[in-house]
């Protein structure tokens, strides 16, 4: 019963972005994407098929919400030697975590480098709660990450690249533009130069990160942005970096900055 009530709360909390934004205009030729398109920035939502978009539009039908329920449980479950839960410090997630999904990754002073949401969660667990960190791509880490990011659903992505974040943004940009792998391709070749065109039967998107963690139909599970990075790197026959590698966190910063202004959609549904 308790779980059910929580689930309903989740559904109510995340009704910010709703169904039916994709409409033909009067002349029937163009599609208005509403909040999913800001200037020339287009969310991956606008490249998804109608059925995939319908899955995302309905929070009940979106399988990622199964993970969010788990995340909501983790939020309230005490762990580690301090016997504390997330809720003990941060309070209700819908207040304490609103906006977090929009501004991460951020510069973390103790580390002297960038930190993303997954790392922040595990840092909290290790340092504050003295608990075991969650493994990357585990159901637990995906669940709590999606839960935290979902509190910012509908808010515009707004990562800062000023001050100490600047050099890391430069590194992320360099990574984005660096040719790599046996196919000798950089991110820009697909996601800037050829976005909207076909690569074999697939439409290339702009590679925006505003919907991660995303439920990918191909994966049949929720997956992190770093999993997507690794998949992309493998596709161009490059050696992927490990989950949470500095290279990927810097890239995450650059990619998020490219999408500044697009709404946070976590957890989205993609093909």
């Amino acid at each position: 019963m308790n779980t059910t009530r929580k689930a309903l709360g989740l559904l109510a909390a995340s009704a910010g972005l709703t169904a039916g934004v994709a409409m033909a205009s009067d002349d029937g030729t163009r599609i208005h994407w509403g909040p999913y398109m800001v200037d020339d920035k287009r969310s991956g939502y606008t490249y998804a098929g109608a059925q995939t978009r319908a899955m995302q539009d309905d929070d009940f039908q979106n399988p990622a919400f199964l993970w969010l329920e788990r995340g909501a449980d983790i939020w309230e479950t005490a762990a580690g030697e301090t016997g504390q839960a997330c809720v003990d410090c941060h309070g209700d997630a819908d207040e304490g975590m609103a906006g977090v999904g929009a501004r991460y990754p951020v510069y973390f002073e103790d580390w002297g480098k960038m930190m993303n949401v997954e790392q922040r969660i595990n840092w909290c667990r290790e340092t504050q709660m003295q608990a075991e960190p969650f493994a990357w791509e585990s159901e637990d880490l995906l669940g709590i990450t999606a839960f935290v990011k979902n509190q910012s659903k509908g808010m515009p992505v707004n990562v800062s690249i000023d001050g100490p974040a600047q050099p890391f943004w430069e590194q992320g940009k360099a990574f984005y533009e660096q040719r790599r792998g046996q196919l000798d391709l950089a991110c820009t070749h697909c996601h800037v130069d050829h976005e909207g065109t076909l690569i074999r039967a697939e439409t290339l998107s702009q590679g925006q990160s505003n919907g991660f963690p995303t439920y990918r139909l191909k994966w049949q599970t929720l997956g992190s942005l770093h999993r997507r990075f690794r998949g992309c790197n493998r596709n161009i026959r490059a050696e992927p970096y490990p989950y949470g590698a500095d290279e990927y966190v810097n890239l995450e910063l650059y990619v998020a900055w490219r999408g500044n202004g697009l709404p946070v959609e976590s957890p989205s549904v993609r093909k």
């Binding site: 779980t3 689930a7 009940f60 919400f65 199964l66 993970w67 329920e69 788990r70 159901e139």
Partner: peptide, 10 residues
């Protein structure tokens, strides 16, 4: 996922 959680909306 370890725990099976059926969901129904009616």
């Amino acid at each position: 996922m370890a725990k099976i959680r059926p969901r129904v909306k009616a």
